[in-house]
Design a binder for these strands. Structure first.
Length: 449
DNA sequence: TTTTGAGTTGTTCGA
DNA sequence: GTCGAACAACTCAAA
């Protein structure tokens, strides 16, 4: 007697451990593991693509070479594969981003036409987007109340995954791994093992000081797990299960919640991927002409003349990652010192970030731009000199990425133009205090006061 | 029902 | 140098 196999469709969950959909698939029968290289992915950033391909190779190794890589549109590929191996069920985690939801609905429909079904269980989140609601059933627009409810909703313990029996069928051939795109950035190791190693290292060395050191880019004080969370090499549930209620560990938990909050906001309002969450901000005057493009170019290259901004941009391009504090500083600079659309910065980030996640990235940008969920006022404008002095007090971070500053005295390292003729660095492209006033004036024009 | 207080991440100014 | 106030506006929940 032979039973028909099931298909496990991997997407943003490139791991075998603590994988709810896989545990369900493995309990249902022999499993054909597939990953579909959707042409839509090829337009995303090269570092992220390279990282994902490396993660896929590792996943394939972990399952003894059973992973079937297929190329094409999942709407066509998944139903064809299910049909050719006689699978009646395709297991996959839920995706809550706009493109993924649309794609999954269409795949489910195509499967149904063949008498098969898409069984979606689990997601990349501890609490699935759409779950946390206010008393009246509407979603939250502010983080803190969301966070409180999110914690009371809670999440399951990590899932045990029984060792699956992988199917290798002559009817479905692996179409092979594509070549990695050209990527000069030095990326972290892409494997579930590497994710857990990093979690162990962070837990031992930094987690209990996290509250105090998380904002310092010159210190290895953040988890750096974002690339792993992005591709599901680790599930947040696995991390949450290890956390206690001390101030630092609770704060790390709240950072994991930010990721879930933004996913929730985007789930409820998919239009806010590239549009302002707050429509009133559509009236904000922005610069988009030739001069604006020139300034944007300087920002991208890390040549604004403000060391903390430029160091951040160099780190991004060199490593595919930027410290969170610095992300806020460079974003504030683009929006409030250069008066450029946040979308320009968000797009550049998405091209370069290994952890680029459309919900976290774009809503993080909206938060800084004052067009999003910010419960704080618009006049909160970062001063790049003050931020540098506060969070990189020794100048270690800026010197790491800007060798021209190697010999500049620490008290000048965040404002080398004060050295006058002796400034070894490029001159600032704008005057912060002037642009700050300009931003506040433009904001006043929006509010009409 | 209305009021009240608090809200990730800040800066500047004047005492 | 340190401190508190002012900077604006809206969400949300508790009183």
């Amino acid at each position: 007697m032979t039973t028909s196999p099931v298909v496990m469709w991997f997407r943003r969950d490139l791991r075998l451990a603590d994988n709810e959909a896989l545990s369900r698939a493995a309990a249902s029968g022999e499993v054909l593991p597939v990953f579909v290289l959707d042409p839509t992915f090829t337009v995303s950033g090269a570092p992220r693509m390279a990282f994902m391909l490396r993660a896929l190779r590792k996943l394939d190794q972990e399952m003894g070479g059973a992973l079937v890589i297929l190329h094409g549109d999942p709407r066509e590929v998944i139903p064809r594969v299910a049909k050719s191996v006689g699978a009646r069920e395709v297991f996959a985690a839920r995706d809550f981003a706009p493109y993924g939801m649309k794609r999954d609905a269409e795949v489910a429909k195509a499967l149904q036409a063949n008498g098969a079904s898409l069984v979606q269980c689990g997601s990349a989140y501890a609490v699935e987007p759409g779950t946390v609601r206010k008393g009246d059933g509407t979603p939250y627009a502010v983080f803190t109340p969301f966070y409180k409810v999110w914690q009371t909703v809670g999440w399951p313990k990590p899932f045990d995954v029984p060792k699956p029996t992988w199917v290798q069928s002559p009817k479905v051939q692996c179409e092979g791994f594509p070549d990695e795109p050209e990527c000069s950035a030095t990326l972290p190791e892409a494997s579930a093992k590497a994710a857990m190693n990093r979690w162990d290292e962070f837990s031992e060395k930094a987690l209990d000081r996290y509250y105090d050191i998380r904002n310092n880019p010159d210190v290895d004080g953040t988890s750096m797990l974002s690339p792993y969370l992005r591709f599901g090499l680790v599930h947040p549930r696995t991390l949450l299960a290890d956390l206690n209620d001390t101030k630092s560990q609770a704060h790390y938990r709240s950072e994991l919640c930010w990721r879930e909050f933004y996913a929730d906001v985007l789930f409820h309002q998919p239009r806010t991927t590239w549009e302002n969450l707050q429509p009133k901000m559509n009236a904000m005057k922005l610069d988009t002409g030739a001069k604006a493009k020139q300034r944007f170019d300087a920002w991208c290259k890390g040549e604004t003349g403000y060391p903390i901004v430029d160091a951040g941009m160099k780190q991004l391009v060199a490593t595919g990652w930027m410290h969170n504090r610095v992300r806020m500083i460079v974003a504030s600079f683009l929006v409030k010192d250069l008066h450029l659309p946040w979308q320009w910065g968000a797009r550049f980030f998405m091209r370069h970030l290994v952890d680029g996640d459309i919900a976290s990235n774009n809503h993080g940008w909206q938060w800084t731009a004052g067009t999003g969920t910010d419960a704080a006022p618009y006049f909160r404008i970062f001063n790049p000199v003050a931020q540098g002095e506060k969070f990189d007090p020794q100048g270690t971070y800026v010197r790491t990425w800007l060798p021209q500053l190697a010999d500049v005295a620490t008290n000048m390292v965040h404002q080398p133009w004060e050295l006058g003729m002796l400034n070894p660095y490029v001159a600032p492209i704008v005057d912060h205090s002037v642009e700050r006033d300009e931003s506040l004036a433009r904001y006043k024009a929006v509010t009409g006061k």
